[in-house]
């Protein structure tokens, strides 16, 4: 792995974090959503750099392209595009405590990441191509879960239709 990759990795990682920070601090939902889309693009880049090209692709397609678009649709549908008058943010104390909790949480996660990682690398058979590496286990080992997921999606569709339907 060359420095180019290394540097790019850092750049995209830091860009993701910066976009995330921008996302949480934006008052306007539309701006926030766009910053989140940016974060997702950056993550997609990181996935690709970690040899998960397929995931990177569907990250763009599903997340940035579908889910976030739905979000934006809703924002626009409800006409929430501009910063609302009512207090969207908590007060200073709320922010400080939330920040404190965030620091503690981060520290904990990092400590656990250091402590608990088994560093033994099992011999992973290198897949012939990216799709096969995922499709093989997905349609063999995880077939049942895959099929159940389709039921989940069906349920979600029915639920969403039912909930969003205008009654009366």
């Amino acid at each position: 792995m060359g420095y180019f990759y290394q540097i790019n990795f850092y750049i995209f990682g830091l860009l993701a974090i910066a976009s995330a920070l921008a996302f949480v601090t934006r008052k306007s939902p539309v701006a926030a959503a766009l910053w989140l889309v940016n974060t997702m693009f950056c993550l997609s880049a990181l996935y690709i750099m970690m040899d998960a090209q397929f995931i990177g692709a569907i990250q763009v397609l599903v997340y940035a392209g579908a889910i976030m678009v739905v979000f934006l649709f809703v924002v626009m549908l409800l006409n929430l595009g501009h910063p609302s008058d009512i207090a969207d943010m908590r007060g200073t104390w709320g922010k400080l405590i939330a920040a404190g909790i965030g620091v503690v949480l981060l520290a904990q996660i990092l400590v656990i990441q250091r402590q608990r990682l088994p560093r033994i690398v099992p011999d992973v058979e290198a897949p012939r191509n990216v799709i096969t590496g995922i499709a093989q286990p997905l349609f063999n080992e995880y077939l049942l879960a895959f099929e159940v997921t389709s039921v989940l999606l069906l349920a979600a569709i029915v639920g969403a239709v039912l909930l969003a339907k205008r009654r009366g």
């Binding site: 909790i101 949480l105 904990q108 656990i112």
Partner: peptide, 13 residues
Amino acid sequence: IVVGVLAVLGAFT
């Protein structure tokens, strides 16, 4: 919930 998560993670830590 977050406070609870902190406590659980704290136990792991």
